[in-house]
Structures are given as C-alpha cells and as structure tokens.
Design a protein around this nucleic acid. Structure first.
Length: 425
RNA sequence: GGAGAGGUGGCCGAGCGGUUGAAGGCGCACGCUUGGAAAGCGUGUGUAGGUUUACCCCUACCGAGGGUUCGAAUCCCUCCCUCUCCGCCA
C-alpha cells in the first residue's frame, strides 16, 4: 500500500513513477475527491464530538449538584444525530479510499530499467558454464519417468493436471534438496528457520498483497475463511504483522520451507508438460525485515544467498534485473535467478528476489522504533526463493544427466542422500 | 464439539456508568547523586488520525464489531482468542 499522504501531496509525481509499469493509473485521481471529503467530514465530526464531550461533562456536574440537566441532554441528543450521519459518510468514503489504495501497486525503484515485459529485463551477471553434453539432452520428464523418479499420470488420476508424484529416489532427491537448502541458509547465511502454517487467513493475504486483487490465483477452503499459501512469503512476512520491532533486531532474516499452492488461472497451455508449472510445489523462502536505509544492500545479499545454492550444486545460471513492466505487484525492485535447462536450450526462472520497500509493511503494519526515540517507521520487507525445489529438481536431472540414462548426484548433495552418487534404475 | 474462567499500556496489575488514556508496580530513557557501580531521588515514557513552520490543541483506541445511555474500560448482544476440565483425535 502506498502512503496516502504522499499521493495527496503530489499525485502527479506518483502517477508518473507508477506509469513505468504500464497503464494509466487514473484511479489515483478517483482517490483524491473522496479523500478530501473524508477529511472535511472528519474535522466536522471531531469538533461535534468535542462539543458533546464537554456538554456531557456538564450534565454530570449538574446532576451531582442535583440540578436539572434535561436541556443539555436534549442538545447532546441532537448533536448525536449529526455525528452518526457524518460518521456513516466518513466510513463509506474511507472504505472507498482504502479499496482503491489496495489495488494500486508499489512504485518501481527509479534505477531499474524501463520496459514493458521480460524482453527488457537486464542481465546483471552469469555464473558457471553450460554442461557439455556429447549426446542429445533429454528433458526432465523423460529422465524422471525412465528412472521412476516421478509419476505424472497417476498424479492426474489422484488430483488432476499440474500435479506430480515423486517416488523412490526422486522423492529422496526432493527431500534432500529441501534439507540441503535449509541447512545452507540457516548455517552459512544467517537465517533463522521458520516452519509456518500452510493455511492462512484473509488478513495475512492482504498484508502481503495477494488480496484483494489476486483472489483468483489462490486456493481457498470451502468451510473456513482460510487460503492455501502460494508462497511462504505470506505466513513469514505476516509473522510480524501489527508489531513494532526493536531497531537493533534488524535485519531479521528467516528461511522457511513450505509447499506452495497456486491455481495458475490464466496460464492454460503454458508449461503444461512436466514439473515446471505446478499447482503444488516446494520452496525454501528467504524473508527479511530491514531498516529502510539498508534494504537496497540487503536485497543484494539476499540474491547472493539464493545464488549460493546454485553455486554449491554447480549449476549454470544468470541474474536478471526485472524491468518496470515485468515487476510484481508489491515489488519495487526484483532480481530473477534463471538456471540453464539443456533440453529447452534456455534459462528458466528458479528464484525471484524482491525488495518491497515499505509497501507490504504499511499494509501489514510492521514498524520499528528507533532507539533514539521518535515515531515508529515502517520497515522494509524483502524476500526471495532460496530456491524453488521443484525447478531445482528439474535443473539437476537435466544438467547432470549421463548418456547411459542415469543422473549424477552433485557432491554437495550426497550427504543428504546417504552417500548416493547417482540416480539409477 | 460441551462446560467453566478470562482478555486493560513493553510487561505485571487496579479500575462504584461521569474530568481515567487509564492508579500502582516493573522495565526503559534522561538527569541528580557516586571515585565507579548499585541503591536512592527527580523527570519522562502507547498508537493512529486531524490541525500546525513548530509548540500546542482536538478525535479515536482498554480483544473485534454492534447496542443501551446526556455520558461506557465499566451495562447488554454477537464474534474472535487464551486458559482449565470433559469428549474426540495424529
């Protein structure tokens, strides 16, 4: 959520910066009039309440003295009618303003590239080299099914399209990846592990920006007001919702493994084969709460923490800085990590690391108080995948496949697989 | 799910329907005191909104939302949460 005061003071400047995302953002103009009316009404209502308070106190005094106060009581009754009317009006206006405000995305960082879509994203760096395969690479579905690591047909039977069953060594590999990632992030990169609920309430979804605008992306439960999380970002960021944090405790860094549930509405026909785009996938998420002045630096560190997994597994990847038009709703700046997939002869997103500045913090009311005093200020929130386990599984199968159909297990992972060196029949 | 108890400021804990944003204590901050520290003494210490150059001032908030009343932390209703006991269950 953007700061209403800033919009009020300079709507055109805000609009200009938002327009880099694409779109006209004329809802900013629609905001101004009701907000103005709301404030005028509020002033009137407050002065009436002040009068009412004083009169009521007088009534009390008169009654104590045993005098007649009926005239004053009548007056207050009349005032109450006006107050009620005004407050009803104010409430309607406020709802209108809030609703509009919740539908406006974050302002892109001024320094990120212009552009309408991913074609304008900028490569920041790359790491490693493409594996030299002396044979035609198979894709992860072929490899996985031949080795009996995954069963997609039976997943369709028990759940439907975009679901997978991992089995045998495949299931073991997936679990190994999750444990490996959590260990690296908690032991080497300074994150504290959190294991949160996978079902959350509406307030949490609103806090991180999934609601109200993206309800169709979420799985909801039928009999309870709960949603399945699309990412651990939701429960972990909301961990500190409605809190005032100690400034010295910042940055707070959490790593959390959770499955993620996404309806993928509107992505029909996209990545329909294999494990790339699933309704359910596993991910280790990194979340940070930072001082505003340090969030830019923290984002760089977060990206490096995510990269460290790929480096340890010796997987070739590149780091992309997203352009304004490709940015997610709540983000001000985002780096994507894209891993090399031999079968597709291309790079695929395996992590997305963003600085949300104060946008989520304002929605979720996460503040920090300076030791030196003064008003609490909104912290900056950041998060990134560290990494998506399903896509990492894909990358491993494809990059480590051998001509004989087996898959070599990278050394860093072997301790997590009882020393196994290869996935075989 | 059933029965009972309870939800007040960073924490503990008072609070006959009338000046209580809320006693008291702890904690914290600053000052005095001290060779230094502790103790002691003094002062201060919630959040949001409005207004303002600023100080001030005003409004709201005692789990949430409604209601009664001239006036509600205090009374009534609904919901949420916590605790205890019973039931059920991994």
């Amino acid at each position: 959520m953007l700061d209403l005061k800033i919009i009020r003071e300079n709507p055109e400047a805000v609009k200009t910066r938002l327009k880099r995302r694409g779109g006209d953002f004329k809802e900013l103009d629609e905001l101004l009039k009701p907000e103005e009316d709301r404030r005028l009404g509020l002033q009137e209502s407050e002065s009436l309440k002040n009068k009412k308070k004083k009169l009521s106190a007088e009534v009390g005094q008169l009654k104590q003295k045993g005098e007649d106060a009926s005239e004053l009581m009548e007056e207050v009754k009349t005032i109450n009618i006006s107050i009620k009317e005004l407050d009803d009006k104010i409430q309607t206006l406020e709802q209108q303003v809030q609703e509009t405000l919740l539908g406006i995305p974050n302002i892109p960082d001024d320094a990120i590239p212009d552009g309408a879509d991913e074609s304008a994203n900028k490569m920041v760096r790359d790491w490693g080299t493409k594996p030299k395969l002396s044979f035609k690479p198979k894709n992860h579905v072929e490899i996985g099914e031949q080795l009996g690591l995954i069963d997609l047909k039976r997943a369709v039977k028990i759940s439907g399209a975009r679901f997978a069953v991992y089995k045998g060594q495949g299931a073991g590999l997936l679990r190994a990846l999750i444990n490996f990632m959590i260990d690296v992030q908690t032991r080497e990169n300074g994150y504290e592990e959190l294991y949160p609920p996978f079902l959350v309430n509406k307030e949490s979804m609103q806090g991180t920006g999934q609601l109200p605008k993206f309800e169709e992306e979420l799985f909801a439960t039928r009999d309870d007001p709960l949603y399945l999380i699309p990412t651990a970002e939701v429960p972990v960021t909301n961990f500190h919702r409605d809190e005032i944090l100690e400034e010295e405790s910042l940055p707070i860094c959490y790593a959390a493994y959770t499955p993620c549930f996404r309806r993928e509405a509107g992505s029909y026909g996209k990545d329909t084969q294999g494990l790339i785009r699933q309704h359910q996938f596993d991910k280790v998420e990194l979340v940070k709460f930072s001082r505003p002045e340090e969030s830019a630096k923290e984002l760089e560190a977060l990206v490096e923490n995510a990269e460290s997994i790929l480096k340890k597994l010796n997987l070739h990847y590149r780091v992309m800085e997203l352009c304004a038009g490709d940015l997610g709703f709540s983000a001000a700046k985002t780096y994507d990590l894209e891993v090399w997939l031999p079968s597709q002869d291309t790079y695929r997103e395996i992590s997305s690391c963003s600085n949300f500045t104060d946008y989520q913090a304002r929605r979720a009311r996460i503040r920090s108080k300076k030791r030196t005093g003064g008003k609490p200020e909104f912290v900056h929130t950041l998060n990134g995948s560290g990494l998506a386990a399903g896509r990492l599984f894909v990358a491993l199968l494809e990059n480590y496949q051998q001509e004989d159909g087996t898959v070599v297990v990278p050394e860093a992972l072997r301790p997590y697989m009882h020393g196994r060196e290869a996935l075989t029949l």
